[in-house]
C-alpha cells in the first residue's frame, strides 16, 4: 500500500492544470489523470484509488495498476508528488 504527498505550493485547478510556482512549470492532466491527482492530493492510498477508478471506468484492475504505476513515475519525475 502506498501513499503520496503533493507539494503544498503546487497550484491545481479543477480542470487539471498544474502550476509549480517555484519553477514556473505547467502541466495539463486529462480528466482521469486530474481525478487521480485530486485523490492523491487528498491523501488517498493507492488501493482506494484503484477501487474508485475500476468502479467508475471500463477498465480491469490489472491494466489500471500498470497505467497507474506509469502515471506515478511521471509525476515523481516531474517532482509533482513524493512517496510517503
Amino acid at each position: 500500500m502506498a501513499k503520496f504527498s503533493v507539494p503544498s505550493n503546487l497550484a491545481v485547478s479543477e480542470s487539471g492544470f498544474l502550476f509549480v510556482p517555484s519553477s514556473g512549470e505547467t502541466f495539463t492532466l486529462n480528466e482521469i489523470g486530474s481525478e487521480i491527482f485530486m485523490m492523491l492530493k487528498k491523501g488517498s492510498e493507492d488501493k482506494e484509488i484503484f477501487e474508485t477508478v475500476v468502479d467508475s471506468y471500463d477498465i480491469d484492475l490489472y491494466t489500471f495498476e500498470k497505467d497507474f504505476s506509469d502515471f506515478i513515475t511521471q509525476l515523481k519525475n516531474h517532482k509533482l508528488i513524493k512517496e510517503l
Partner: peptide, 8 residues
C-alpha cells in the same frame, strides 16, 4: 518572448 513570474 514569453515568461512567467515564479515564487522561489
Amino acid at each position: 518572448w514569453a515568461g512567467i513570474t515564479i515564487d522561489d
